[in-house]
Structures are given as C-alpha cells and as structure tokens.
C-alpha cells in the first residue's frame, strides 16, 4: 500500500515534468543537436581573413597577416599540405590523426597563419588562463546566458569568413556546439580543430592570455 502511494506520487511528478517540458518545447524555438557541416581544406574564404577578433584582448601583430581569399592556395588533401612551419614540430605531431571532418594541427596552424578567425569554445576561465593567440572566446552556452554578448562577438566576424573553432581536445563537443550556433546564424565556412588547445600549446605555437570581452 505504502509502495503504491510512493510510486504513484513519483509517476505524478514524471507526468507533470513531461507536461511542463512539452509546453516548454512548444514555446521556444526547436533545439538542434544535428551534426555541423564543416570543411577541412586549407583555403581561407570570405573576403579578407585576418587574425584575431575585435573582442580578443591580444595585441594585433605589427603586420597583420591579412590575406585575400584568392591569394590563398587550397591545401591538396587533409594533412598532406606539408607547407613549411617555422616552429620545429615533428610531422607526426602536426599530422596526427583527427576525427573525420576536423582539422589536423598542421591545417589549424596554416589557417592561423593565413589569418582565419579563431574561436575558443572552452569555459571562460580556461580562456583567461591561456588561449590560441588572437582567438576570441565564444562558448555555446553564452548564446543562452548572455545572448547580446554572444551575438556581438559573432557579428564582429563576417558570416562568410573562415572561422576555426577549438576546445580542450580529445572528443570534446564544445567546438561542435559553438559551430552549430554559428551555422544557425549564417556562418558558412566553419572549421573545427580535431586537436585541442593542449596540443597547440605542446607544439609551441603562439598563445595569449587575458580576459574574454
């Protein structure tokens, strides 16, 4: 008898949660967890790709690597561009296998050198402790918690520009989540780093520090 009362009470809570959840789902825009369409070639598109972001706290270089899209030669295949990198990093690190549809460390660095936008999708405190130089912070959750700030960061980049997004590394989902948000608001050339920030640091590539905008 007691068990029945407790179980019926529990089912009532579950039922009410389904009811509220259904009403909630009808009131807001549909949520989207579909796979994001990304590219992995080495071409920077969207007018003038450039390093950094207006929101980035890193100082811009004396001679920003502004590059017209037409001047950038696309990489031949994933991990096979083998262009010279001025930092001594073993090829097995630069071309280490990454999940399908994501960038190797070599491709990521080449895009960085060509002036693509870089977005850090990790937590804000992680960004403040260190990030890829000229990257801006834009975690997916910012679109929910402070949409004005999120859209200000997103709108500071031309929608057709090349945007490279990264997170911790491994099978982290944060970069995919931010890419999905950017895709929803019209960004067309999104790239995801298959390696993470730790791999970038271990390779000795440039990093920056400072608070997010």
């Amino acid at each position: 008898m007691r068990c029945m009362h407790i179980t019926s009470g529990l089912l009532s809570i579950v039922g009410a949660a389904f009811l509220f959840g259904t009403v909630h789902a009808l009131l807001i825009e549909p949520i989207n967890i579909a796979k994001v369409s990304t590219r992995t070639d080495g071409e920077v598109t969207g007018g003038q790709g450039r390093r950094g972001d207006p929101g980035s706290t890193d100082p811009l270089p004396d001679e920003p690597a502004e590059t017209d899209a037409g001047e950038v030669e696309p990489a031949e295949e994933t991990g096979s561009s083998q262009s010279p990198i001025d930092i001594d990093v073993p090829d097995e690190v630069l071309d280490a296998p990454v999940p399908e549809g994501t960038l190797t460390l070599r491709q990521s660095y080449e895009l960085w050198e060509q002036g693509a936008y870089f977005i850090d999708a990790r937590h804000e405190h992680e960004f403040e402790e260190g990030h890829i130089q000229y990257a801006a912070w834009l975690a997916s959750s910012l679109f929910d918690t402070d949409s004005d700030r999120a859209f200000a960061i997103a709108q500071s980049m031309p929608p057709e520009s090349t945007v490279v997004i990264y997170c911790v590394g491994g099978e982290c989902d944060a970069s995919h989540n931010t890419a999905r948000r950017l895709e929803q608001i019209g960004f067309t050339d999104l790239r995801i780093m298959g390696v993470g920030y730790t791999d970038w640091v271990e390779a000795g590539f440039p990093t920056g520090e400072g608070s997010a905008p």
Binding site: S12, I13, V14, A17, G21, H24
Partner: peptide, 26 residues
C-alpha cells in the same frame, strides 16, 4: 526538456514536504 522540469518539481515538492517520499525517491 523533461529532466530540468523533473528536478524543479521534485525539488519544490521536497522543500514544502508534499509527496516528499516520492520526490526523494525520484
């Protein structure tokens, strides 16, 4: 959609002590 609403309902019911055993079980 369901888990957060379940958390809210169960949490509130536990606080006010309404069907509290069911809420605690949930």
């Amino acid at each position: 959609f369901v888990i957060p609403w379940f958390e809210l309902l169960a949490g509130l019911m536990l606080i006010i002590g309404l069907r509290a055993r069911s809420a605690a079980m949930g």
